[in-house]
């Protein structure tokens, strides 16, 4: 269960504080419910994911995680560009306290990401699809209750999307997903509930289709 209680967020810029990105966002994500976040560009979707993931702190309000939450995957976050895929994987194993069974985890990541020889090449040589394969594999190698995905699936090819989907089906009895995606099909495949972010506030929908409908109704025809 994740409780988000009345959070406010704005960033500090060189010209003083920015406008409020999130203004009084509150919701509760029950256990084992996968949620899709929809909203326009700049509505605060990635910001909200970072706050849920504990990477950033809200200016006001609080986020309570009563379960193990992954780091937010997406946009190369958490990958050190000058190091190889394997070195990054080792790093993540170590900070999560899996020093002892590191070999098994790395074998899993290598198998899931299907990067071939590139696994031992620096991340900066990877395409965006390769990066998201690695990021997905990295987070799936650890037992989280909630996985946070920021557009990770959007850069993968069809085979990878299928693989990610199968992996989540297997996890569905004890884990869930919070994801941002602009692909309507992806959201419907992965998520049951939806959150629509608009003007700094969040609207909860028990059905992702209703969230998508509410979002689309505001778009100019």
């Amino acid at each position: 269960m994740i409780i988000v209680d009345d959070i406010y967020k704005r960033y500090q810029t060189d010209h003083g504080p920015s406008k409020w990105i999130l203004q009084g966002v509150s919701f509760v994500i029950p256990p084992r419910v996968s949620v899709g976040l929809v909203g326009r560009n700049g509505a605060g979707k990635s910001t909200l994911l970072r706050l849920i993931g504990g990477v950033d702190q809200p200016n006001r309000g609080y986020v309570e995680r009563r379960c193990r939450v992954s780091w937010p995957m997406g946009f190369g976050g958490g990958l050190q560009m000058s190091l190889t895929g394997r070195q990054n994987a080792k790093f993540v194993c170590r900070i999560h306290g899996h020093e002892a069974d590191m070999d098994d985890r790395i074998a899993y990541i290598q198998d899931f990401a299907e990067l071939g020889g590139s696994f031992d090449e620096p991340i900066k040589t990877y395409s965006s699809g390769m990066k998201s394969r690695l990021q997905f594999g990295l987070s799936l190698a650890f037992d989280f209750d909630v996985y946070i995905s920021d557009e990770v699936t959007s850069t993968g090819d069809a085979a990878f999307k299928k693989k990610a989907q199968d992996a989540f089906k297997n996890l569905a009895d004890h884990a869930s997903l919070i994801m941002v995606s602009h692909g309507e099909g992806t959201l419907k495949q992965f998520c049951t509930a939806g959150i629509w972010l608009n003007d700094g506030t969040a609207h909860w929908f028990d059905d992702i289709n209703d969230a998508l409908k509410a979002y689309k109704d505001t778009l100019p025809k």
Partner: peptide, 29 residues
């Protein structure tokens, strides 16, 4: 969701794990 907190690591264990990982990472680069 009981299985979640089966054996949480202590703060010290987390910090030491992070230090080791960072030290090795820095040494490699």
């Amino acid at each position: 969701i009981k299985h979640v907190y089966e054996n949480p690591r202590t703060h010290l264990a987390i910090t030491l794990g992070v230090w080791k990982a960072l030290l090795l990472r820095e040494a490699v680069s």
